[in-house]
Design a protein around this nucleic acid. Structure first.
Lengths: 241, 241
DNA sequence: TTCCACACGTGAAAC
DNA sequence: TGTTTCACGTGTGGA
């Protein structure tokens, strides 16, 4: 039995060579062989299903690792561990870069929150912030993509303007009840609103709200607005955090 | 011998439970045990080194996978394959995002060269851009930093909104004659202005202008506004381009 | 030769 | 129940 396993193993590896033309790739892309043993194993009976299952699992894992290698540039060593390591470093690199760019854009828009750029997704700008915040952001992302919600948020910016004033500027699709729901959101937050303004244009609603608040309240305010909109779009979801 | 292995295995897993307090994490973070078998295995001699080597290799791999899970948000399942899958999707997500942001900054930079951010290098983000553009950017940068100009432009965005309408949104410092000079600029450009609005706040002027124009005119309009402001600030310089 | 990385089969545990 | 996932020891082939 061991002899047969060995032969099968060699057969498999040899075929991998032929398939990938590179011995360094020998541990990936053998999904086509997953059904081989399966068809020739009505003899084993007992644990042969476990064998093929395990083999499929390993193949899947290697396939994933292969795919991971594909999306990460500058992979020096083809090592399994090295691939994961490079992927980690690459993600961290992207995080840093994102943080930099976020600071850049933050500064760019700090003086002028109510600019309109419809094809830009704002919540992708929050990179390595607090995990809870990120989670909430993702919930928001899911919620805003539900096309039947009254508020489809396209952009949200909260900027401190100095003199204890925060400017909230948001863009959303113009739908039925959007305007009233939007007002309800800001009503519910019990803010000290100095002045507010809504412009309707080109199927979009642009709302600008000047709020009396401290600079430290900026982030909290943004979170509160986001969660309020999410809760309004999807009252069933437990967005209590 | 198998019996002993089994016992050791159970011992290890039990300790993992105690260590991680969660059975889902049972396959990670056992680096502390890597030296255990090593010290108690002068008896085997032959292949026991291979055993401990293989164990170390597995531990390293699991550790890496654990670290990978840490840098990827939204990991739903703790599955090995799922972790890699989520990592792949996350990297692809970041790639898309990067592309978007690069386009965004491209637009920002081409439309608003007089932004101030000394500690960020645009050249890192824009690899093969035209050099002439960059040169012109520097010229404009010099012009805006003359603190005695009536218009110190802080931000300028020109966006096509659909329905033959372009929205110009700009921010500048509030100084003497800024408002009238700003109006003169837009007067001089002979545009089909639908509506315009200026908000003065916190030492800044925020001006929004809706202009009837085609989408193709967007970039040209942006340049015209920039050059008009520059020419207004420094009438002596030959900013005819 | 040793070292390293891998695929394999196997039993157990979790869902 | 069975299916899935895991760690383990082992043998193999390439540096």
């Amino acid at each position: 039995m061991e002899k047969m396993d060995e032969e099968y193993k060699h057969f498999l590896e040899t075929n991998m060579f032929l398939q990938t033309q590179e011995h360094l790739d020998s541990w990936g892309l053998d999904e086509a062989f997953s059904g081989y043993y399966d068809s020739s194993s009505p003899d084993g009976g007992a644990s042969s299903k476990n064998i093929v299952s395990e083999r499929n699992r390993r193949n899947k894992l290697n396939q994933r690792l292969f795919a991971l290698r594909a999306v990460v540039p500058n992979i020096s060593k083809m090592d399994k561990a090295s691939i994961i390591k490079d992927a980690i470093e690459y993600i961290q690199h992207l995080h840093e870069q994102e943080k930099k760019i976020e600071a850049e854009i933050m500064e760019l828009q700090s003086g002028m929150p109510n600019n309109i750029n419809p094809n830009y997704d704002f919540d992708q700008e929050l990179p390595v912030l607090l995990r809870s915040k990120k989670k909430r952001t993702d919930q928001l992302y899911d919620s805003l993509n539900s096309t039947n919600s009254p508020i489809e948020l396209l952009e949200l910016r909260v900027t401190y303007m100095g003199e204890n004033t925060i400017v909230v500027s948001l863009t959303c699709s113009k739908r039925t009840d959007t305007m009233v729901k939007l007002c309800e959101v800001f009503e519910s937050l019990n803010l000290k609103i100095i002045t507010a303004n809504i412009i309707c244009f080109s199927g979009k609603l642009l709302k600008t709200v000047f709020i009396q608040a401290n600079e430290e309240d900026k982030d909290l305010l943004q979170i509160k607005i986001q969660t309020a909109i999410v809760a309004l779009n999807d009252p069933l979801s437990p967005t209590s955090i």
